[in-house]
Design a binder for these strands. Structure first.
Length: 770
DNA sequence: CCGAAGAACATTTTT
DNA sequence: TGTTCTTCGG
């Protein structure tokens, strides 16, 4: 009975057994935090008979949630854990917002915008306000709006806030408030929420509808929050509301691992937790079960340079382990090569598999040199982060169709697909529709549905009508068929799948496969069993599917045990562990990032990031940096990171690759002599079709300008046929040799007397038939 | 109206 | 270096 308690140490057990009232678990890296959380939930269910439906667990990634669920199932030996409310803040709130959408004036199947979508809405809004998007850069504006939302500052409040207005004035962007208002309104009109809205609207829902608040306050008898140090103000307020009745709130976190302040997270939440509730139980987990003593020592040495932490001492009983290897290379390419070589060597010497290695870096852009060298050595790898599956153009295009079917008010997706595949509704027509919509207070979809009233010319009108009919047809199929069948129908009926299939280039093939994979994922989603009865959660509609996938990262769909080296940013590595870790690019300006060296707060966050990176390693750790690195294609010099100076010499082994001379500059070492040359192998061969650069750019074929005859009048070209002689405004006289192209886009090939053979698009060019 | 080709610009980090 | 925006020719 309760065998699951046996593997716990004293503090862990204390955290698990504490039943009611607030508890804060300060959990150092690798101290068994997930184990405590899952055991605690299992214990609540098994020993105290708490219904799974009444437990809310908020995690940082979907993957962590899935893992926890699985572990609880294993512990309890049943499938009750499926009924837990467990997931990221964003996905759990999306679920609730879906159920309560009508109260906020949103459709149930509201669209969730990812960052790209949001950016593009900002851009349109800026343009519609007649502002310069060179000055009001969408990214910058969106960040500002995002921070406001994360601080629960709404658009009107923002626009009327003296202090914020002053700030925007001083940065020369006084119109941000206006943009925020317009952006907010546009999202509402589109029936869409961005990531931040999922939090903000959840807060609005709870704070304006007492009966809703009451419902969820009572429903969630126990609340657990992982990675509490990375919660922001909005999340904090929501949690406070939800926990107010039962006060059975358990937060787990480590202030030393707070690395998301750029996303509005505030370390204050965890530092202040004890003041938020009476009688907070505090448990500290300080024993590390993950890493060697050397690794823990280095982590501790570095992090102690930060001020204002919760006092704690991370220690371990583990093997002392090897010293940490510090490696300098000449360039980032050498760094890549060194790491790949070392992986190869370690595999042989210490019998590691590919999956035992991780390469961690500060920025996504650093992945390239590692990719290249790993590929060259035939070592399988996988990159996490970067462009996720659902962000690829072809996937997004397909998803846009599905979004429009479910929520036709949604303009971004509508604009994306209205002329894909090409159906003759071009930019001007779209602009016209948008303008008409804005003038009439309608949605673009409404305008398209009544296109005849808005004076489109007949050809366009026909295309629009066909398009509208098609979307309506898809939508009506949704009542009869499941999401997968409808998606397949969309692929067939629009011709997208066929078009991609016919593209036999490598990229075309990949695009085709991606769309197939998307279809498979829908199928899989349909076939996964629903949660038990819980009405507001489980529905297998297309709308629910779409909401869910936007919140997925590619870290979430890990083909587990694939034997590959993992490459990711340090942020993405949070919560993970690997036998062997390489932390790369430890240079001033890169790590710490050049953006963060101007304030103590930012710099300390970089240091915490370094701490996170180091503590991912279980057995062996390499720290690498390069003297020179390509940035924007330009070779740039970097100094070694200040963090390296904070590591006492005795923990380091510098013998492997040049080491690092005291004071930061190095003499020539064996490694330098080996790797000092900028490149390996034969010099890059010039592509055969490339002209040598000393010849200058290839001369353009001379063009003979033609002055049109005085009586030049463009003829009606609908009957144009090969053999006819024509006059072109610019190219002069010639003979039609061939006709091709489709109905509304005919192309004639014409052999000109003076300018050679050219292809002419007839509905553009002006020709006179002689 | 559409694609190709050149220019401009971009790098923190992510739900 | 790699992507996205703009321009231009067919």
């Amino acid at each position: 009975m309760q065998h699951y308690l046996e593997g716990l140490n004293e503090q862990q057990r204390e955290a698990v057994l504490h039943k009611d009232g607030p508890i804060m678990i300060v959990a150092g890296a690798g101290s068994g935090k997930t184990k405590v959380l899952t055991t605690r939930i299992a214990h609540l269910m098994a020993a105290h008979h708490i219904d799974a439906f009444r437990i809310l667990a908020l995690t940082f990634t979907n993957k962590a949630a899935a893992e926890m669920k699985e572990r609880i199932e294993r512990t309890l030996g049943n499938t009750e854990a499926r009924n837990l409310y467990i997931g990221t803040f964003h996905s759990v709130f999306a679920r609730i917002l879906r159920a309560e959408a009508d109260r906020l004036g949103y459709p149930r199947s509201f669209t969730i915008y990812d960052t790209d979508d949001a950016r593009s809405v900002v851009k349109t809004v800026v343009q519609e306000l007649n502002l310069d998007d060179k000055h009001y850069k969408p990214n910058l504006v969106l960040n500002r709006i995002s921070s406001a939302k994360n601080a629960l500052v709404g658009p009107d409040e923002y626009a009327n806030d003296y202090h914020l207005q002053q700030e925007d004035m001083q940065s020369g962007r006084p119109a941000i408030g206006k943009i925020y208002q317009a952006y907010w309104a546009r999202c509402r009109k589109n029936g869409a929420m961005d990531f931040d809205d999922l939090l903000f609207n959840m807060y609005i829902l709870l704070s304006t509808f007492p009966e809703v608040l009451h419902k969820y306050q009572h429903k969630f008898q126990y609340i657990l929050i992982d990675e509490y140090q990375d919660t922001n103000a909005a999340q904090y307020q929501i949690v406070k509301l939800l926990a107010a009745v039962h006060e059975n709130i358990c937060v787990v976190g480590d202030d030393a691992q707070s690395i998301y302040s750029f996303r509005g997270a505030t370390i204050e939440n965890i530092l202040q937790f004890q003041k938020d509730y009476d009688d907070v139980k505090v448990v500290k987990l300080e024993q590390n079960y993950r890493s060697t003593q050397s690794i823990i020592a280095v982590a501790n040495e570095v992090i102690k340079n930060n001020k204002g932490q919760i006092p704690k001492a991370l220690w371990t009983d583990n093997h002392p382990g090897e010293k940490i290897r510090l490696v300098r290379t000449m360039t980032d390419n050498d760094e890549g090569k060194y790491v790949a070589d070392t992986i190869q060597e370690q595999k042989l010497r210490n019998h590691y598999n590919n999956r035992d290695f991780a390469i961690l870096y500060r920025t996504n852009a650093q992945s390239r040199s590692f990719e290249e060298s790993l590929r060259r050595m035939n070592i399988a790898y996988r990159i996490y982060g970067g462009i996720s599956f659902y962000q690829r153009k072809e996937v997004k295009d397909f998803i846009a169709y599905l979004r429009v079917i479910v929520n036709p008010k949604e303009e971004e997706s509508l604009k994306r697909i209205i002329n894909y595949p090409i159906r003759g509704i071009g930019k001007t027509s779209v602009e016209k529709a948008v303008l008409a919509a804005n003038d009439g207070g309608l949605s673009m979809w409404d305008v398209l549905g009544n296109a005849a009233m808005f004076g489109f010319k007949s050809g366009t009108l026909e295309s629009i009508d066909q398009f509208v009919t098609m979307i309506k047809m898809f939508a009506s199929e949704l009542d009869k068929k499941n999401a997968y069948d409808v998606a397949v129908l969309v692929g067939k009926h629009t011709g997208i799948v066929k078009e991609l299939f016919n593209d036999k280039t490598t990229e075309g093939l990949a695009r085709y496969e991606n769309v197939q994979e998307l279809l498979n994922s829908i199928k899989e989603w349909i076939e996964t069993p629903l949660n038990e009865e819980d009405g507001e959660v489980g529905d297998k509609s297309l709308g629910a599917y779409l909401q869910q996938i936007t919140l997925l990262t590619d870290a979430d769909k890990d083909e587990e045990d694939a034997d590959v080296v993992k490459l990711m940013t340090i942020h993405a590595a949070k919560g993970l562990e690997f036998p062997v870790v390489f932390v790369a690019g430890i240079e001033e300006g890169l790590f710490p990032s050049g953006m963060s060296i101007n304030s103590r707060e930012d710099l300390e966050e970089e240091r915490r990031l370094f701490y996170v990176a180091v503590t991912r390693a279980k057995q062996r750790l390499w720290l690498t940096y390069a003297n020179n690195r390509y940035r924007f294609g330009q070779l740039v010099q970097n100094d070694p990171s200040r963090f390296l100076d904070e590591i006492p010499e005795l923990h380091l082994d510098k013998s492997h690759a040049g080491g690092r001379a005291p004071g930061g500059f190095g003499g020539t070492s064996a490694f330098d002599r080996m790797h000092g040359k900028p490149s390996f192998g034969p010099p890059p061969a010039r592509k055969p079709d490339q002209r040598p650069s000393y010849l200058g750019p290839a001369p353009k074929p001379a063009q003979v300008d033609h002055t049109p005859s005085k009586d030049f009048v463009p003829s009606d070209l609908s009957g144009l046929a090969p053999g006819q002689r024509v006059e072109h405004q610019k190219f002069g006289f010639g003979e039609v040799t061939k006709m091709e192209g489709s109905g509304h886009n005919p192309i004639a090939t014409i052999k000109f007397d003076l300018n050679g053979e050219k292809k002419i698009m007839l509905n553009y060019a002006k020709l006179r038939i002689l």
